[in-house]
Structures are given as C-alpha cells and as structure tokens.
Design a binder for these strands. Sequence first.
RNA 1: UGGGCGGUCGACUAAUGGUAGGUCAAGUGCCUUUGGAGCACUUUGUCUAGGUUCGAAUCCUAGCCGCCCAGCCA
Length: 577
Amino acid sequence: MSTSTRDEEPATSAESPGRPSNFVRDIILDDLKTNKYTGRVHTRFPPEPNGYLHIGHAKSICLNFGLAAEFGGKTNLRFDDTNPEKEEQEYVDSIITDARWLGANWEDRMFYASDYFDQLHAWAVQLIKAGKAYVDDLGAEEVRKYRGSLTEPGVESPYRNRSVEENLDLFERMRQGEFPDGSRILRAKIDMESPNLNLRDPVMYRILHASHHRTGDKWCIYPMYDFAHGQSDSLEQITHSICTLEFEDHRPLYNWFIQQLGIFPSQQIEFDRLNLTYTLLSKRKLLQLVQEGRVRGWDDPRMPTISGIRRRGYTPQAIRNFCAAIGVSKTNGIIDLAMLEHFVREDLNKQAPRAMVVLRPLRVVIDNYPEGQVEELEVVNNPEDASAGTRRVPFARVLYIEQDDFRLDPPKKFFRLSPGHEVRLRGGYFITCTNVVKDERTGEVVGVHCTYDPATRSGNAPDNRKVKATIHWVSAQHAIDAEVRIYENLFTNEDPGQVPEGQDFTVNLNPNSLEILTNAKLEPSLATAKLGDRYQFERLGYFCADLDSKPGALVFNRTVPLRDTWAKIEKRQQESR
RNA sequence: UGGGCGGUCGACUAAUGGUAGGUCAAGUGCCUUUGGAGCACUUUGUCUAGGUUCGAAUCCUAGCCGCCCAGCCA
C-alpha cells in the first residue's frame, strides 16, 4: 500500500480577483503601492519543532504561502528551534511532511533559527559593547520580583550597570560553559519601568546545558525567542512577518532589536489564532493527550493535527478552502466545527466514488428470489461525475441491510423498511417486508423476510410507482468483512478549555469519541481499496482506508457523516415527546 | 486598579463617510434511484449613550464587555 500524491497542490488561499480581502492583505497592498520593500513580498512560516502541526497552523500556512504566491513573492519555512529542551527531530520531520501535504512549497528555502546562532551571538556582543545589554546574576526568582507587576514598575537589577568589559568577560564565560544553568542571563538594557513588561530588560540569552537537535553540544547558551525571531526574519529579508495576536506586546521589542542592530526592518503583523468548537488547539494539551494515551498518537484521526486530519480522510483542498472561507482578522472568535466539515463534504462529494457498505448488518431473505441465482447489477460510481463510470454489484437472495433502515414499529415520517412496506434497494429491486424473525429470548429482530418485484430491476418502476425510500444493501455471500471506525468529537464541550475549578481539560473528553464496528459488510469492489483511498459509503458518509488495514482485513475511518435529515427529524420527535 | 488589542446575524467575515452583503448553521419548499447532492426562498446583526455630518458600522467623546501580557517557553 502506498499513499497517493495527487493531493499536493499549491497552498494558495484564493485566486479570483474579486475575492474578499483581509487586513494583512490590505497592508501588503499598501506597501506595494508605496514601494516600501521595493515591490517585494517575502513571508515565512516559523513553527517550533516541539509538536505536530495542527489545523491552526494550516491557517497560518495558507495565509503566509497564499499571500506571497498571490503577489509573486516567496515564503520560507523556518524552524524556530531556540529551546533544545523541547525540540526534536521527529517534529521537524512531521512538520515538513504535513506542510508539504498542505501544498506549501518553500523550494530551497528551509531554514532554522539555529542556523543563525553564530550571528545572534555576535549581535549580542555588539549590544554589550554598545552598552545595551548586560549579564545579570539574579536568579529566576529574583528576576521575577525585580520585574514588578502589571500595575507596579520594575526595579533595576544591581548588576545592571556593570562595565562593558565585565559584561563581555562574563558573557564569554557563560558561552564557555563556566556557569551552571540558571545562574546568569544576558539581558537587554531597556526600561524597567515600561508599562510593557516585555521591555523591562528582557532576557536575551539563558544558560542551558542541553544538547540541541541540530547544533549538538556546540552551545550551552541559547537565545530567547525575542532575541532570535526578529533577527532571523531580518536575515532572511522577510518583509511581512505574520504571527498571532499574543505577540502584539512583543512588537516594540521586535522593532527595538532590529533598530539597535541597524538591520533589515522586517515588519511584524499579528492576526487572530484559529479556534474551533469542540476542539483543542494547544500543542501543550495535544502533547498531553498523546503522552497520557488518551488518543492513539499524534495522528489519531480524532486529533486536530494535520496528520490526524489526513489520516481521518480530509483532503488538503478541503482544508485550504476552509482556511480561505474563515478569513483573517484580529477578533478572537471561535469557528463552528460544522464549517470545517462542510468543506470536506463539498470536496469529497465531487471526488469520492460511491460504494455500498452496511455498518450494522440485518439479514434479509428475498423469499421469491431464486435460490442460488446471482445477478450483476450495474450502478453508477458517482452521480456527481459521469466520467467516474459504473461498476457491477452482485445481487442474490440473501442480503444485508442497515439495522437502522428497518423498524418493526415505524415512527411517523419513517419511510424505510417496515412490515408491509415497500422500499427500493439502491440499483436493485423494490422489496416489500412480509415477515420478521425474532430472537426467541430477547424479542430482538434478527432477520427480515421480503418479496421482490422482478419488474423493478435496477430500481426502475415500469409503472412509475413511487417508493419513499431507497436503502443500501450488500449481498451476504459476496460481502467482505471489515472494521470501520466511527469518530465523534473528541470533546463534549464546545469550548474544551472551559474547565470546572481545580479540574483538568480531560474531564471534557468524550468517552464515545471512537466506536469500532467490527462486523461491517462491504461490497466486493472495495477489496482493492488502498491506503488513503476515499469513498462515499452511500447514505452514511465519507470513509477512507486506514493504515491499520492489512490484506484481507481492511479498516476504514469515517471522515465525516453525510448530512442526515432523518436524524434531525427523529431528534425533534424525541424532544417534543 | 498598568499596558496592548478587539467588539457587525447563532458562528465566521465583508462593506475603508453613501443600498449592512457573503459563507456556515437553522428553517421552509422544489427536486431526487443516497432522507445525500442540487435549486429556490426565509429568519436573525452594526455593544451602549451622546456628538460631528445632508448622510455614521465607519469619524469624535464617554462608558460597557471580551482577549492577551508579570517563563531563564514560543
């Protein structure tokens, strides 16, 4: 089995000239007009390799790559790897795979903040020499105290006014590994009374005797985000450095370093992070789910990670369309998960070949159908796409239908099979229920007897007789057994971060987020399904072959169910009761 | 109670002093060999109060509400 690559297309956000704009795009348009960057647009996507990419990153990828592509610019992939304690090669590998899958193309421009460690160090020395940075001997606890609070100004460290020589010497000895972790830091000398806490002599370098996934043991001091990010942007000549809202307070610092160093003035622009109902988009919490075994790994199909969503059966196009549709702004909102689901359905409806699968089988015997007879009935592969052609499906005397498609006592508006009623078997015949077989002890219906009308072959009614329902079916003797995994929301709470006092977000976990059906019956054409192949199982939803599939033991994931009008009606009926 | 940033249908987002529009959701009808898809229609909105203006979602003033910031995380 191998995954197909036909999914991979450019991650542009939208193409038509009349497209709705957004404020970031407007800024670029304006910069282009004023020739601020000599007509250049160069963005970057800067993930930290401390976890897997999720749907929130997809928004950022679409924005960064989409905007640059629209204006003939470029986008770099840059790993923000300044904290060796949290970062791993596994994460950089997955990020590359996932970003590519989404359609991001950075050509040969894949960088690491760690590529710039030498330059960053030199710049730190430069700032020390300019009297703009100093080595502080305060411990973490004291640094916090000296920083003041939201409402009180900070107090200058007693080490703030060391001589340049002493600072240079100390910083060099920090680099040499002479001091233990946490014993000293390099700080920028800005303003301990600034109302913006980020400007109260922010830390530039900390001592970390940790081995880095790329630089190994070359360094035991590592730059902080604030001292690395802007300069990395600048080195790469990034024109528009797009990040999320929580960095707004950092922008003055971002600009301060660039200005003090006199380097290329990249411009930071902040937009709102994606929030989705019933979904958690925090790498820390997703990591926790993985580590505690609440899910089966980063690529569990219930996870909002790109790898999870991919395994679930989503297409990159659907994700791109979603990202284009939700727009970009500065309001912190929460997108209805239904919006995401809409875009997969929309995409898969056009693409996915149909197949008949019975999830929870109920045995049907067509009493008047000749024993031993088998017909090959022709059915269309995709009513939305004539070019998808047709296939043959075997029909015989004993079939399986969905348990949900039969009711002994049909409620109002239930049009499917029930005693005395006629339905159409999709692409087959009209059948009428004549009798049921019950389990003697439980009273449960375990089988149904029907008669068929030979004149209705392929589902046509020569007399124009109407049936109110068409149901799917699989020939019992030809059916393939398979496992089907049904997913529900991972969380029961619309905002899973909302947690009762003293509790953990895991209280919101949905105990029914995964249901494994081991007795599904597949039409025989599905035998050749390959990893990642996506289908619409008629009347049920979109499904794809999971990587747990083995020859002769297929496993399918439900990507998303079809919209279900009957379920809504039934729910309303139950609520009004 | 410091600073920063926001508040437009149920959700998201346009309108950049000149008809409050689109998408999702919800609902109704049509159509249907998927109760799918499609099509048509419908409901609901400018945080509040003042002001400027011929005209305000947009500008001004004052409130109210929400989010972010006190990591040697990013």
